[in-house]
């Protein structure tokens, strides 16, 4: 929309008339720009037209006499200038155009070029605020021990040592976890290590990779599922196994 690189985040209103998959807004596989550029370009171009029209209406001049560059609208003959933001409220009340001409690729300024990323200078200085860096007034930190068995419960916990440790505010006992709350995460975690916890593993206490594999093998052997067992009338389906794993991110940020 002839904004500039730093202003080129997709605004909310540009998201509306878009084919979606199950009402999701999925991004992945580096497909974002490739799959969305057509409608994002149209949305940007439509917004530019509306902003120019709003500026032209304010100046009472034909929109064709206005040009845009880096988010600034200029009326050539009178040299008047307005920033997008200054006419955004008026532009938002205009009817979106139906016929939206897109810029010829040979006139592209950003698309198709390698641009410098804007986040990097801050990142080499350690300035970005990651989740682990968020601090709110009066904020406390917790370190949590969860029952190692899904469906298990906390049976008992002796927190007598932890509760006396520096910075510790509270030991929270809940159904399947216990947490130490302290004035810093390190202090909470140190105290957590001093808890003496007993878990009640419950019905899943004996579940292991072996028992899960056995359950699946039994399922495959079920005579009511012949098609799962055989590729053809006399050809058994080969089986292979893979251990369970999770896609948890590897950092606390």
């Amino acid at each position: 929309m002839t904004g500039w690189w730093c202003a080129s985040r997709v605004p909310k209103w540009a998201r509306a008339p878009i084919p979606r998959w199950r009402n999701w807004w999925p991004r992945g596989g580096s497909q974002g720009v490739r799959s969305s550029q057509d409608y994002v370009r149209k949305a940007g171009a439509a917004a530019r037209m509306m902003l120019v029209n709003a500026a032209a209406a304010r100046w009472k001049v034909p929109a064709t006499e206005c040009t845009v560059e880096r988010g600034v609208i200029t009326h050539g003959p009178s040299r008047r200038r307005l920033r997008y933001g200054e006419v955004a409220a008026e532009a938002a009340r205009l009817q979106p155009p139906q016929d939206i001409p897109l810029r010829d690729p040979k006139d592209w300024k950003i698309a198709g070029k390698s641009m410098h990323r804007l986040d990097i200078p801050d990142k080499v200085m350690g300035r970005p605020v990651f989740g682990v860096d968020v601090a709110l007034p009066g904020m406390l930190h917790a370190s949590i021990a969860q029952c190692p068995v899904f469906g298990g419960k906390l049976k008992s916990v002796d927190a007598s040592v932890a509760e006396k440790m520096r910075g510790v505010k509270k030991v929270v006992r809940e159904g399947d976890f216990v947490a130490v709350v302290a004035d810093s995460w390190w202090r909470a975690d140190q105290a957590l290590q001093k808890l003496r916890i007993e878990w009640d593993a419950g019905a899943n206490g004996n579940v292991s990779s072996e028992t899960i594999a056995a359950m699946l093998r039994d399922g495959l052997a079920d005579p009511k599922l012949p098609q799962a067992r055989k590729v053809g009338p006399n050809i058994p389906r080969p089986t292979s196994t893979t251990p369970p794993w999770s896609r948890r991110p590897a950092r606390p940020g």
Binding site: I120, K123, V124, P128, G253
Partner: peptide
């Protein structure tokens, strides 16, 4: 090094970069 990090666009998420 910080200048070179910017020039070569080294960081992605940036968490480990400092």
């Amino acid at each position: 090094l910080q200048e070179a990090w910017i020039e070569h666009e080294v960081p992605q998420c940036g968490y480990c970069q400092t």
